[in-house]
């Protein structure tokens, strides 16, 4: 019984992994596009969105509204929430521990893009 459950579940798992891989191969390549019109956002405007229920971040020259995404972030809220309303490229690139974010995160970002960061404004 245990042996059967192990073999069936393992085979099903690898079939599902293969299914995700094939789905990725068949998916159109240009599905991740910016969803908002291009506009300039300065430091002052960015700083007004510094709470978990209204959270913008500037990363690599773009501003992202991550309010909807925050609950999905894998780490504790105390790690990501302090970066709301701030330029967070360094934190994004190193996760504050010298480790880069995954390509999954890179692929998710454009979905939340709302404009271009103008640092001096």
């Amino acid at each position: 019984m245990m042996r059967k459950l192990f073999y069936v579940s393992t085979a099903t798992f690898w079939m599902a992994v293969a299914g995700f891989w094939i789905g990725n191969l068949l998916a159109p390549g240009s599905e991740q596009t910016a969803t908002a019109a291009e506009r300039d956002i300065g430091v002052a405007e960015l700083a007004r969105h510094s709470k978990p229920d209204d959270c913008w971040m500037a990363i690599r020259g773009s501003v992202y509204d991550l309010t909807q995404y925050l609950p999905d972030h894998p780490s504790r809220p105390s790690i990501i929430e302090p970066w709301c309303g701030k330029e967070a490229t360094e934190a994004y690139d190193t996760k504050t521990k010298g480790r880069q974010h995954s390509s999954e995160a890179d692929a998710l970002l454009p979905k939340y893009r709302i404009g271009r960061f103008v640092g001096g404004s």
Binding site: W21, N24, E31, R99, Q100, S102, S103, E104, A107
Partner: peptide, 19 residues
């Protein structure tokens, strides 16, 4: 909804040490 992001979530080839 995005097959690409779903695979990136799962794939061991495109991730980092946590995954």
């Amino acid at each position: 909804p995005s097959a690409r992001v779903a695979w990136l979530t799962l794939s061991p080839f495109t991730e980092s040490w946590p995954v």
